[in-house]
Design a binder for these strands. Structure first.
Lengths: 177, 177
DNA sequence: TGACCCATGTAAGGGGTTACATGATTTG
DNA sequence: CAAATCATGTAACCCCTTACATGGGTCA
């Protein structure tokens, strides 16, 4: 899939370590691509083996050593190739919907409780996305222009979460009967 | 995850073969849970090994034999257990957003073409969901009541696709500049 | 005749999670 | 004193996709 290419994109704009990437995933890409550190370290190894990354060990005092990765020319070429190729639309595998689909076999109280749990998560996600949007909108024009494509992905998150919440309202009405 | 439990739900309401389930996935659950036949056959084997399904070979003339699976008591208990337990919110790994995020390294023409491809897919999906909704709304009250929970999952699909399209309109405006 | 439906699988490999493992430094 | 941050990994396992494999019946 495209964890590989997400990593290439992040390292293209700024070399970094695995730990570093994990943080950047949580912040920038986190709301539409998740990756745990274990997987990131594995991918970095594979990307290096493929010749797309160079790795330089960097000693630090009073901190563990780190390995700083950066794109090679081949890595850059691969990134461009991937960006040029079509990506497949996403499959969505949503366990909550499976549960609702089969919900006739359990109590509506249970389903309501489940919805409430998810509602809390989605509300929190939306709030944090809106906060990031506020920060973006407060930037000077030049920086806003530089971030306009990442901003589109943020908008996707916001519209998606708002739609989720609108649906949840419908669902709660049905479950209240 | 919950492919196992999606299968249990389908077989609970109606015993069937692997081929059969693959079709039912495409129709009923398909817009929020995807499964290829290869995986379904594997899962059926595992579910049988776990004692959750019984399998009965059924000979047919002028057609290949089929294996009809149905829930055991243990399978039914497992389904109830799963329905009672909380499910984790979904992770979303969306390659299109990764591409947009890194889109500064390619041409906007390329990004526009990519968006157009996805747009066509999402429009088609929405159309088919709306058609299913029309069929649902035309049902007599009693049947509508019986399908109200699956209908909620359909609504999720509709609201989700509409939100996607609204976002795409925003994105196209940005990419048109 | 070619495409599609019925019907079932194996095998290889990639993607991702969970559990386990270590150990110093900084902050509340 | 406890928790979080910095920093890196291994191993086992599950989930899922892709490619390969077979073979009869129906319909245009």
């Amino acid at each position: 899939m495209s964890l590989k290419h997400a990593i290439l994109i992040l390292l293209e704009s700024q070399p970094g370590s695995g730990y570093d990437l994990a943080k950047r995933f949580k912040e920038g890409l986190g709301y539409f691509w998740n990756a745990k550190h274990q997987q990131i370290y594995q991918e970095l190894k594979k990307l290096s083996a493929a010749g797309w990354l160079d790795c330089e060990a960097q000693a630090q005092d009073s901190r563990p050593d780190k390995k700083v990765y950066r794109l090679t020319a081949a890595g850059h070429a691969e990134l461009l190739r991937w960006l040029d190729a079509p990506v497949q639309p996403n499959r969505i595998n949503d366990a909550l919907l499976v549960k609702l689909f089969g919900g006739a076999h359990t109590s509506t109280a249970n389903l309501r409780a489940e919805m409430d749990r998810h509602l809390a998560v989605h509300r929190k996600t939306l709030d944090s996305l809106l906060a990031i949007e506020q920060a973006y909108l407060a930037l000077p024009d030049a920086q806003r222009a530089a971030w306009r494509l990442p901003y589109l992905t943020l908008r996707r998150g916001i519209l998606g979460e708002q739609a989720w919440l609108a649906w949840a309202a419908e669902a709660q009405q049905v479950l209240a009967e």
